[in-house]
Design a protein around this nucleic acid. Structure first.
Lengths: 147, 147
DNA sequence: TATTGTTATACTCTATAACTATA
DNA sequence: TATAGTTATAGAGTATAACAATA
């Protein structure tokens, strides 16, 4: 064990490591992490947050609707809002002139990076566990049959 | 180990037992169990479901609003709906004539019992774990610092 | 004809404010 | 004056249907 790892005792927060891994597994099994708090912190509606999240690359609006589990008609307004805030741009698709690709602006990339960091942060109760418990938790969750 | 317990292998569902215990702890830590699915199954709005849940005894409407984290003005409509379906009754409080106590009817008690059973049922992925893993999971979650 | 995105519209859920009847 | 519950109303969030442009 490295000295850096040894220094992290019970409850000392850390990026990466077993807590992150356990949290990732848990989030897949139970519910996504507390989006609402993050959304408020970044002054974004939950749906706008989900949209930024899926925009690792430019995507058509229909794809965004699918990811958000909502009707495409809603995506129009969501993208309108993000466009007004300068976080995304509507771009024409080179393949199909019906399609509009939603792409992040430079500012959008900055906000998305911050958001991804917040969302992936394990919650306090998980950080409060010993590293051994975090590791065991992650292993057990890894054995669960995800439907 | 009893023969009944021994017979439950990996993935055989069971009421009570370590899965229930782990699920109870997890639900406290992460998010309440998937209310929405249960609500649809019982043809009840999520708020009505939460109301039934808190009615282990007759309670004033303000108390219900507090439990639901919503304004009291909404409780009027929620209770209206439950009353129309014959699940609750508005009763006068013997102590304060401003207060109305919401009490379950006989039918309301039946629906609530079914609901509580559904909500407390551990999800499939948790039942899919070995009993040893379920137990360990519960123990680890029990060590977490709930804020 | 079918599909992408837009618009108009309606329904649910929740919040605020004014009101009533009690305290 | 303050409080419990009601009513009216407005704002989010999401769904359906009709439409324009394109396939």
């Amino acid at each position: 064990m490295s000295s850096a790892k040894a220094r992290r005792g019970r409850g000392t927060a850390t990026t990466g490591g077993p807590a992150r891994e356990a949290w990732g597994r848990l989030a897949q099994l139970v519910y996504p992490p507390p989006f609402l708090a993050v959304a408020r912190k970044l002054d974004l509606r939950p749906a706008s947050l989900g949209t930024l999240r899926v925009l690792d690359e430019p995507r058509p609006m229909g794809e965004i609707a699918h990811f958000l589990h909502c009707d495409s008609s809603n995506v129009t307004g969501i993208v309108d809002g993000l466009e007004e805030r300068g976080l995304v741009r509507r771009e024409p698709s080179p393949k199909d002139r019906r399609v509009k690709l939603i792409a992040l602006t430079a500012e959008g990339r900055r906000v998305r990076a911050r958001l991804m960091k917040e969302v992936e942060m394990p919650p306090a109760w998980l950080e409060s566990l010993s590293e051994a418990d975090q590791r065991t938790l992650g292993e057990i969750l890894g054995r669960a049959n995800v439907k």
